[in-house]
Computed example of a mutant assay.
Amino acid sequence: MAALRELGGEVEAIGYADETAGTTRDRLLTCDGVMVWADPISDAGDRSRLDPILREAAAAGVSISAHPDIIAKMGVKSVLHATRALGWGTDTHRYADLEELRALLLERLASGPRVLKENRSNGGRGVWRVEVADRGGGAQPIVSVLHAARDSVPFKIPLDALIARFAPYFERGECLIDQPFQPRLGDGMIRCYVSEGTVVGFGHQLIRALLPLPAEGVDSPKAQPGPRVMQPADAGAFQSLRDDMEQSWIPGLQHILAIEHDELPLLWDADFLYGPKDDRGSDSYVLCEINVSSVAPFPPSAVRQVADAAYRRAVAAHERRVAGRGTTASPA
């Protein structure tokens, strides 16, 4: 907020709760620009009442980031399938219904462990590592399943019984994404922070989700994720990733999803796992998810870039709006 004030903006934090949705709506309609942090899936509720308010504000000329329609394109797991041909892609499949999952999953498990992801999963919820534990000698195969949520323990279940658990999910019209488990998961996850189309920092973290539990158990220190180490955009270890993102992968994403530059979120991130090393020993990177709706924390190096972009968009929205109001107030 301080960086925006330094640029000349009038800035305030506006809390949201469904119980006060009307008050929030009225306040947002007086703004020129709004940056939204709202967890799409939490114990406190969802965005079903907030998103229509944001769409209404955007239609009234307020700059909204991230717009709910952009979240629906970028911030879901189906983006992994839609963009699988980009350099960040892997052997990714999309199951549209229960019958497709039943027909194809066992065949794909033959190549090794797979990771199944609900389209709107986050925080490890709705993500499972699945691998064959016992083929059963012609009978129903038994699979080992590990949920990515913290403190989860693996369990074994007949494959048909696992598939049946997804029936209510598919009945809601959702899809399921299937990617191969990445053997280098233990090397950590790289979070690439982006403002519009520019990389503004990185975070590297040793994670434990989907890895075998240590002998000491789920509550042991060895079972806990490490801290996320923030680094600036020019961090030497990730320059090839930065170049790929800015020069190829983000433009490719925009083309595939039909997203204009000024529609890209002011702050978003792409989470990568290490893929196989190439013949020269250089790392490759596999996209595992994109976060759009609630990116925090983020590197200090991101603040100025995000503030500049937010202020620019707010000024542009302000100029369009004051033309019809005849006022000259500062962008808010």
Score class of each variant (00 low, 15 high):
A13E: 13
G15V: 02
A17V: 09
A17M: 06
T20P: 01
A21D: 07
T24H: 07
R27N: 05
T30E: 14
D32W: 09
V34T: 07
P40M: 09
I41Q: 11
G45R: 12
R47T: 12
R49W: 08
I53T: 05
S63Y: 14
S63A: 15
S63T: 12
S63E: 11
A66C: 14
D69S: 12
I70L: 10
I70W: 07
A72M: 05
K77H: 13
L80I: 07
L80K: 01
H81F: 15
T83A: 11
A85D: 11
L86W: 01
W88S: 08
D91M: 05
T92M: 01
R94L: 15
D97L: 05
R102K: 11
L104C: 07
A110P: 02
L116M: 08
L116I: 10
N119K: 04
N122C: 11
N122M: 12
E131D: 13
V132T: 14
V132N: 11
G136M: 08
G137F: 07
V145G: 04
A148R: 06
S152Y: 11
S152A: 15
P158W: 11
D160R: 15
L162F: 15
F166T: 10
P168K: 09
F170M: 10
C175V: 15
L176P: 03
Q179H: 04
P180A: 03
P180D: 02
Q182Y: 05
R184T: 05
C192W: 00
G197K: 06
G203I: 01
G203H: 02
L206H: 10
L210G: 00
L211D: 00
L213K: 01
G217I: 03
A223D: 06
Q224I: 07
P225K: 02
M230N: 11
A235C: 10
G236D: 13
F238G: 00
S240L: 09
D243N: 11
D243V: 05
D244Q: 14
Q247A: 15
I250T: 04
G252Y: 06
L253M: 15
D262H: 14
E263Q: 15
L264K: 06
L267G: 01
A270G: 09
S282C: 10
S284W: 00
S284L: 00
Y285M: 01
I290H: 00
N291G: 11
N291C: 07
R304D: 14
D308W: 08
V322C: 11
A323W: 09
